[in-house]
Design a protein around this nucleic acid. Structure first.
Lengths: 206, 206
DNA sequence: AGTATGTTGTGAAAATTTTCACAAGTTGCC
DNA sequence: GGCAACTTGTGAAAATTTTCACAACATACT
């Protein structure tokens, strides 16, 4: 398949969010223009994005909400459950474990790791906090699909290297640092400093 | 000034993070290639990004770390302090108020708002939790620069409309929904579902 | 059946972003 | 001073992404 750009994938995710809202409201069909307005894009862009994967609409009519949502979930790989490990039992780690949206979308947090003995052994919303030293043997017994790095910047690279060595291919990184990683490993950064600085730039140049 | 792309602004932010690390380590100079490797881009891209704003390097030598960092802070508008209000005293709101990186970069959280009477009146790290109904009069007395939306999706649009009416021009949105807003208002979305789905897509198509 | 209206899917054009490639400038060394 | 080694800054080329524009359908109504 032709390489799909990250922008397109992110927009598909946005479209899916809208479709889910329409599903809840019981709407039957939607057209590309409605999706565009909500996604801050254009109807041509919506149709082009979808066209990379097939032809899901009906000329003159638009798209069936339920069907298109199902197609998008399939395209985005949301058909299966993912096992997630959260590394770092600080505030971000805690907020993530408790975040309902995670489980709703099939991302199951199976364990939390930390180096702080005071936290190890506890249970957060039914998820056990384990010592970081057990990560290696745990992952050998029961591999995970996604690791969330919610640890300080100065240990993030080292931890990522370990995770890569243990075969993890997808990482959600909250540490405010750019991590080096092999090509076949996907790293998504969530970086508050970056978002704030983008706002700051916008304000300065308003 | 020629319109600068959001990609460029985000990369500048990434470069700044690296420069700050080098400042701490006491490094004097850096060249475009070192910045490129750490920012997952190319040296030509680094130089092009900087060239939109001026010419900060010295041929044959690279860039002075301290000077370039200062220039980037200026470009990104980090010279001034920003007054931030957090709307929503849930888990995300709490994590944000306690997040040190915020204050470090000159983003001062001046208050937190919620509708839950049980939370109102409390103090989080010295920041008072106030009732949402006071937002309007508070902002008239003491305007804020940035509002952080850490509230459920179904009240996010309504709240954004209010904030816009009160003159807020920059919003950091944690609600998993695309918000409509005037052109002169900047909205930055932090959307976990989106990041997870990007990872999911990558895993599926690995 | 024919006409009017609406909307998709998609090549082609336009716009934007990234990469290339090299002249110009800087330092260090002999 | 002259030569070698680097590295920036930047037009031009290449690649990618977005927008345009319209033929191809689909439905509803008379």
């Amino acid at each position: 398949m032709r390489k799909i750009s990250e922008s397109t994938v992110r927009r598909l995710s946005v479209y899916l969010r809208l479709l889910e809202e329409f599903e809840r409201r019981g709407r039957d069909t939607v057209n590309s223009d409605e999706m565009a307005v909500r996604g801050h894009t254009t109807s041509a862009q919506v149709r082009k994005d979808l066209s990379f994967f097939g032809s899901f609409g009906k000329r003159g009519m638009g798209y069936e909400v339920v069907e298109l949502a199902a197609r998008l979930r399939d395209i985005l790989g949301l058909g299966k459950k993912y096992r997630v490990a959260v590394i770092g039992a600080g505030k971000i780690g805690r907020a993530l474990v408790q975040y309902r949206g995670f489980a709703e979308r099939g991302f199951e947090v199976v364990s939390v790791y930390d180096v702080d003995a005071a936290k190890v052994g506890g249970s957060w919303s039914g998820v056990e906090v384990r010592h970081a030293s057990e990560l290696e043997s745990d992952l050998k017994d029961a591999p995970i699909d996604i690791a969330v790095l919610a640890i300080p910047a100065d240990v993030a690279q080292r931890t990522l290297d370990l995770l890569v060595r243990l075969g993890v291919k997808a990482i959600l990184n909250f540490a405010p640092i750019q991590l080096a990683h092999p090509e076949d490993v996907t790293v998504q950064d969530v970086n508050m400093a970056l978002e704030l600085e983008t706002l700051s730039y916008a304000l300065r140049n308003a």
